[in-house]
Design a binder for these strands. Structure first.
Lengths: 122, 122
DNA sequence: CAGAATCCGATAAGATACTG
DNA sequence: CAGTATCTTATCGGATTCTG
């Protein structure tokens, strides 16, 4: 009974964290990226946050971390094969989110949109 | 470009908050519920949290709030017609979450499951 | 380059008491 | 009954500094 909502929470668990959707977006569209590339793609994220978010995604087997044993260090991140299965879900969330923003605009006007864009800043 | 992930965040926005998925679950399955019924269904939530989560869902036009002008007060909550459109998304998240819990079990064993169940407690 | 470690402020969430 | 108000605690996220 309660399980049927705790599983929704499982899905949320791996998505929450202010930066995970953006990180996944970049990894899905760009394929393999180095740590520093991700930093450049997300100008406002700190190393600490980027590291922690990636580690959580790695724990969930969504993101793969490949370490090159060399100096200077080189680490590449990519979506795992299992992680690719999330694609449709992310797409569904994206689609719903898009139409919901439209719905909010119809209800309250476009002010909210401005706020949202200001809140992102990257 | 960045919009394609900010809309995912829009979807997350209305789902995050520790209790929203459970609240939606109950309203989806039980239809109309009074405030006190929701309290009984979610033994561990405080009135403050229940109120705030419901108000946010109301703002997003997912939940409808019907006030009966009488004493003692009576307020009924239900999913709006627009909110019903979230059903498939919630179902998709639920499905993915279910299979992901299974995946985590395969990766790390069933210890996690126990933790998750302990964490819910309702 | 890719982080780890520490500190600190902001926000979310819980406990408790009060009210029309 | 269905909240509100206030206070405290826990968690999250950001800034800064240090390192192999």
């Amino acid at each position: 009974m309660e399980e049927s909502c705790s599983t929704v929470e499982t899905a949320l668990e791996i998505l929450v964290g202010k930066w995970k959707p953006v990180i996944l977006y970049h990894l899905f569209t760009s394929g393999t990226m180095r740590f520093s590339e991700l930093q450049r793609a997300l100008p406002n994220i700190t190393k600490k946050m980027l590291t922690s978010q990636l580690r959580e995604l790695e724990y969930h087997d969504i993101v793969h971390r490949k370490i090159y044993m060399q100096i200077p260090p080189k680490v590449e991140y990519s979506i795992t094969e299992y992680g690719l299965k999330m694609g449709p879900l992310l797409q569904a969330m994206n689609d719903w989110g898009t139409s919901h923003m439209q719905h909010l605009n119809e209800l309250y006007g476009d002010d909210r949109k401005v706020q949202a864009l200001e809140a992102i800043q990257d």
